[in-house]
Amino acid sequence: MKTISKLYKPLYNTIPNIWIPFQLKGTASINTPNPFWVMVKKEITDHVRSWRFIVLLLLMAITCFGSLYISLGQLSEAINNFKDPNRMFVYLRLLTISDGTLPPFHAVIGLLGPLLGISLGFDAINSEHNKGSLVRVVSQPIYRDYIINAKFISALIIIFTLFFSLGFLLLGCGILVTGLTPTPEEFLRITTFILVSIVYVSFWLNLSILFSIKFKQAATSALTAISVWLFFAIFYQILINMVAKAVIPSTIANPGRIMTYKKFFMGLMNVAPSQLYTDATTSLLAPSVRSLGPLTFSQTIGAIPSALPLRESLLITWPQLTGLVATTIVCFAVSYFLFMKREIRA
């Protein structure tokens, strides 16, 4: 416990100082932390001590290290594959290759990330409301949005810490095993990948916070969030594929029509956040990816299969990134609005 409270000390002593210029004179001295950070601290403590977080943490850690172990075994083969334009990026290959027994690291994050986000948020508001602690907290002299902001920020801090430590631990293991050092390009790509993953998980976090405000029972909001996730992860693609097959244009149709058809269904696919995430990570972790949509023959002719710089990869995936950030913000805005409008009583 002592170490944990020491770990929190930086948050205590630095962050409130930043806020002091914004505080009213006389309401706080340097020693009194802003109530908002007190709430964030308490939320983090609650999360970290809860069983479901510990279970998920173990699950994530084990699968991630499992996939690392498998990809380490496959690494020499992948690097010696001269046909692969990405073979120069050892650390990116480390995160993406697999022999099929366990999905690679980025797929593990894509699979378990939503679950982590949902588990951190699904009972944020309704369980406190049912226990009666919500009305007790709002009757303290704090602004009401502190509550929902603290819920979001605390979960975000946890996800941030977790993903960066996992990612960097994997990098460290890679360095120990291979003896190679990652290039700045690789390091930047991996950092960006982790940031995108955080945004993706915080989308699910915000969605489940929204459900926790909307639904009175924690079980209802958890099940709704999980069913939304399952729908987009599995059924949505099947559904789109079925419809797409039914209306497929014949091979002799004019190329313009085939192009519109392809673009339309790609657009539909991109409604699913999991698709956005997969596309974004693909282009970040595989520098040779040149386009996420269809390319015409005239566009590909004469192209040399080589890696793109990070900036170009980011440009390719910019729509996906924007979409992810936008859905996250929309979810948070809706939950903020609902929460502020709601009457809280015991």
């Binding site: 932390p33 009666g132 002299p141």
Partner: peptide, 28 residues
């Protein structure tokens, strides 16, 4: 204000509950 539901945090001690509320009232 003491609501009729009380609503303390069950997994903290009495002292922790009190200190939390005090800190929300800007005490160090």
């Amino acid at each position: 204000y003491l609501p009729d539901t009380l609503g303390f945090y069950d997994n903290s001690t009495g002292l922790e509950n009190l200190v939390y509320i005090a800190m929300l009232n800007r005490q160090d």
